[in-house]
Amino acid sequence: MNDDQLEEVLADAARDYNAPGEVPRDAMWARIADARRQRTAIAAPIPSRRVWFWPSAGIAAALLIGTGIVIGRRMERSTAPRTAVAASRDTTTRRDSSLPTVARRETTTTPKDSTIVAVHDPVPNNPGPDKQGPDKTLAYQLVVLQHLAGTEAMITSFRAAARNGETDAHVGKWARDLLGTTRLLEASPAADDPVMKRLLEDLELVIVQIVQYANRGTNDPEELDLIEQSIKKRGVIAKLRSTLPARDGLAGTRG
């Protein structure tokens, strides 16, 4: 046997080495999907999320108030300050409408204060035991309203910049901050409302895409198109706008 023959024999013998049979494609996929479902179910109440929830929520709340002021696009529609924060500084009668969307509730609580109370202290200071639940939920709802206003402004800014072929680093940072807050709110009582929960999940997805787009720093029209599709197919802007005017209406009842 010469070297060439040996190589031939080697190659032939090697082909049979642990030769695989038919790939159990569907069986493996079923198990993969099952395992991922179980993981997601287990991972839903992530302990680590709780660890950074309180400090992050404080920062996020402060950021939201700031961005809410900066945004201002919606505030320009009214003659008086109409953010949930400003409007609800006036004391009014609390009246829960029991409607699903958070924007349909009214309160006597000062939002800025109640936001901080809700974020830093799971038990509000003043109300009795029967009022703690609604006040806490309300505070979260007010944070959500501010967050939604900020998110709408960020998405609008991003789309405007992206259409001009610009990747704004500021929008990327803004989106990252909003992403953290969105996830916090998803784990908060604010997401008890199924409508709000869906909206927050849709927002999370869109913001993730925007963050990734901004991180890459390239203006890829196809990726931009995917983001646009996500926004449109999930009706994100429409949902935001259908929620936020209710907030304005709420402010308008304050006096």
Binding site: N18, A19, P20, G21, V23, M28, W29, R31
Partner: peptide, 24 residues
């Protein structure tokens, strides 16, 4: 990608069950 990865896993493991586990 599953075909190529499964084949490699099988060649390395020498066992169909292990190859499926590794692929999954």
């Amino acid at each position: 990608h599953v075909e190529r990865i499964y084949r490699l896993m099988h060649r390395m493991a020498g066992d169909a069950d292990l190859a499926a586990d590794f692929t999954q």
